[in-house]
Design a protein around this nucleic acid. Structure first.
Lengths: 257, 257
DNA sequence: ATAAAACCTCAAGTAACTTGAGGTGCAAGC
DNA sequence: GCTTGCACCTCAAGTTACTTGAGGTTTTAT
């Protein structure tokens, strides 16, 4: 309330928490120009400047850019016009928030993974991160292919479930790289494949697996899906893995009969 | 899986969604340097480049800066070291998220307010925004003064309650500016003050009000609190308001007796 | 052959500061 | 009265991750 008190830039900076260089900058761009001692050139801030700076910080807090703030500061009243621009800011912030939330979740998953594995092949890790990053695009892809119930089922999964699947996948890729070269009929290979498929089975549930298996997806879109989920395997490893999985499924069919 | 396919920069850009100028830039800073046709100088991207770019985008997604990415790309395995830096990123992201959430809430409150009022005095609005922005500092201040239960009570309040209080405050300040100058004993003034105090009463609850009233706060800290919550009134208006409130409370005391 | 599309380089702009070099103003201690 | 040191000054350049633009070359389609 001591309206006619003045401050040096250092005092003002301490009072407001805004660094001196920033105050210099605000002066330079004409946002907050205090008086100046004509002889020394030192800036002299007063109570008005304090109020003004508080407005500036408030508008920054709402998400406005400095040039917009320069304009807004001259308005004495705020009307419904303000709401339009506020709504825009709101949308941008919501989007930003979503992205951050996704990143946070992904980092958590990666941390858990690396924590328990000590060392992770970077290709595998990137493949997983890529999957997390494009989760929403994958969902959109599934929606396009009438797999809405798959999406719903997946969204019900907890973070723990996802981390568990991450681990399974990591385990699989490690063992694939070890066993690669052995014949696909090798019992060790078949055990691996079976346990992997079971893990996916229990994650998705039988209904969805059948639905997925029965869904015809055209060549072109397979390519698109591949773009979405890059494999951590080399081309040869992938081929070998596919053969092994086919063989495994054949065996299961035989057993059933 | 067509490992030996190559792409022009345009094709590569379409395939990956990364704009051409950005690819130029990544080349320039040595992050992703494709082959070049020696005669024309045109860039030739291949499958390896695609994989590399996916890694780059993934690391960006986790929050790394481009120079950090340049280093990380050379690592073949990720170990627990990675987790340290991931945890750091996580913290930064959480902080960012909190700030965004606060801004979102504040914008919502401001939108609601302006929506229903059509036009709002900018001083009042800034005073409110300032309050929202420094809510957590205010809480910290109250904690320091053993007002922990006040903090708890406040945090229970819904957004609607807060918006309602915003409105009351807005109404008050409008009327203060209209009635200012009249004697504090004027019935119109007294009605205003009483309704305002009742609003605060019902917001905080009687227990807390009494606790607040009984709390002795030293001069120095009052100043600190004032810094936190700037008044939308002029010094004179504030004095007048204080006198009016004192008179009102005296009247209440008399009634009780 | 020619026109349009795609590509190239190099330079400068963006936002909101931050950092640094080199110099002035002022109060206190000797 | 001089020096030391601190707070302040200006002006320039650096930061991050791009984006925009000018002006020129290459490729592709007709």
């Amino acid at each position: 309330m001591n309206n006619n008190h003045t401050f040096s830039i250092g005092e003002f900076s301490k009072k407001t928490g805004i660094p001196i260089p920033t105050l210099h900058y605000y002066d330079e761009i004409g946002l907050l120009c205090p008086e100046k001692n004509p002889s020394s050139g030192h800036r002299i801030y007063n109570y008005q400047d304090l109020v003004l700076l508080q407005k500036i910080v408030s508008l920054k807090f709402l998400g406005y850019r400095l040039d917009e703030i320069t304009d807004l500061l001259h308005e004495i009243h705020f009307t419904v016009d303000l709401n339009e621009s506020l709504s825009l800011h709101l949308q941008a912030l919501e989007k930003e928030k979503k992205q951050i939330e996704q990143s946070i979740m992904s980092i958590n998953r990666v941390i858990k993974l690396v924590e328990e594995e000590e060392t992770v092949d970077s290709n595998v890790l990137f493949s997983l991160i890529h999957g997390m990053r494009t989760e929403h695009i994958q969902e959109e892809w599934m929606h396009r292919h009438m797999l809405t119930d798959v999406v719903e089922e997946l969204s019900k999964k907890s973070e723990e479930d996802k981390i568990a699947l991450d681990k399974t996948f990591l385990q699989l890729s490690k063992e694939v790289k070890q066993l690669y070269g052995k014949p696909v009929t090798d019992p060790q290979v078949q055990i691996l494949i079976k346990s992997y498929m079971e893990a996916i089975f229990s994650f998705l549930g039988e209904d969805l697996m059948i639905k997925l298996a029965n869904t015809n997806i055209e060549e072109l879109d397979i390519e698109e899906l591949e773009k979405l989920t890059p494999s951590p395997f080399t081309e040869d490893e992938q081929k070998w893995l596919n053969r092994a999985m086919e063989f495994c499924m054949e065996q299961e069919e035989i057993k059933k009969l």
